[in-house]
């Protein structure tokens, strides 16, 4: 006799992902679903899908979902969480969605310390629309709108959202993880769990930036794409925890921000 030690999490539906072969969205979906299972919150979770390849995320999770306009998922999640503070609310956003068109929404959700969890998938490109340059696209990286490679004088330099947002007081937990091998996926899982833990503990905004691949638009095999991620993205997007509020499980070596003093009002 034998026991099953790995299976599809219950928070995932049986629908087959529409993602391209080898796209790490599938891994990240599974990690989120595993966290939902392990916290036992499937029946009280509401997800917010964004615009991009993960636009159809609502088909893949066995939880209530809202589909948000491009970049607006943190605002939609804010509305949900404020109306239903005891539910678990997460957004699932790509880098075009979160780091480009949705910068205002993510910055201010983080600033307010909205008690939501953001899963931020950074694959340095626009996947759904066919491989255009993202704000996260690496210098020299070839995309359909940075032909010949992204040049800083034309298109600036890659944006580091985790570092930016960790300067704010609102976030309780911000980490960047990767999917380029199984050990990193295991670490990513721990970060996703910690982010949900922050929400369950009502500590405020949490975000996990997950470095991800886009084999199709990068023009590589899935395994080549993982190697490309490791060699090229890690130097620009260092992994680690950028913000950890005291009280969250695990090492809390990362810095916390100094709370602003309140002014007296009559």
């Amino acid at each position: 006799m034998s026991v099953k030690v790995f299976e599809r999490p219950k928070a995932l539906s049986s629908v087959i992902f529409h993602y391209c072969p080898g796209c790490t969205h599938g891994i990240i979906h599974r990690l989120v679903a595993e966290a939902i299972d392990e916290f036992g919150v499937q029946g009280k979770t509401i997800g917010v899908a964004s615009v991009g390849c993960s636009v159809l995320a609502y088909n893949y999770f066995n939880v209530d979902f809202q589909q948000a306009a491009h970049g607006r998922a943190p605002a939609v999640a804010t509305g949900i969480k404020r109306c239903l503070p005891d539910r678990t609310v997460f957004t699932y956003q790509g880098d075009g969605d979160l780091a480009s068109i949705g910068t205002a929404e993510i910055v201010h959700a983080a600033m307010r310390g909205e008690n939501i969890t953001v899963i931020f998938v950074n694959n340095a490109i626009y996947g759904m629309t066919g491989g255009q340059m993202a704000p996260t696209t690496l210098l020299g990286q070839n995309t359909t709108t940075s032909p010949g490679g992204r040049k800083p004088e034309r298109a600036g330099r890659p944006i580091r959202m985790s570092e930016m947002l960790s300067q704010l007081e609102g976030p309780a937990y911000i980490a960047r993880v990767s999917t380029h091998n199984a050990a990193q996926v295991a670490r990513a899982k721990q970060a996703v769990k910690k982010a949900f833990q922050a929400q369950v503990d009502k500590k405020g905004f949490s975000m996990v930036e997950v470095l991800s691949t886009c084999p199709t638009n990068w023009g590589m095999t899935p395994n080549e794409a993982l190697k490309w991620l490791e060699e090229n993205m890690l130097p620009v997007y260092p992994l680690g925890e950028f913000k950890t509020e005291p009280g969250l499980p695990g090492p809390s070596a990362a810095k916390t921000t100094v709370p602003t003093r309140e002014v007296k009002t009559d």
Binding site: S2, V3, F6, E7, R8, G26, I27, A182
Partner: peptide, 21 residues
């Protein structure tokens, strides 16, 4: 060896692992 590495990397939840009791 039921190390789970394949299952962890699978993007499509194709793989199930069984460990002998």
């Amino acid at each position: 060896t039921t190390c789970l590495l394949c299952a962890r990397m699978c993007p499509d939840t194709v793989i199930e692992i069984f460990r002998p009791e």
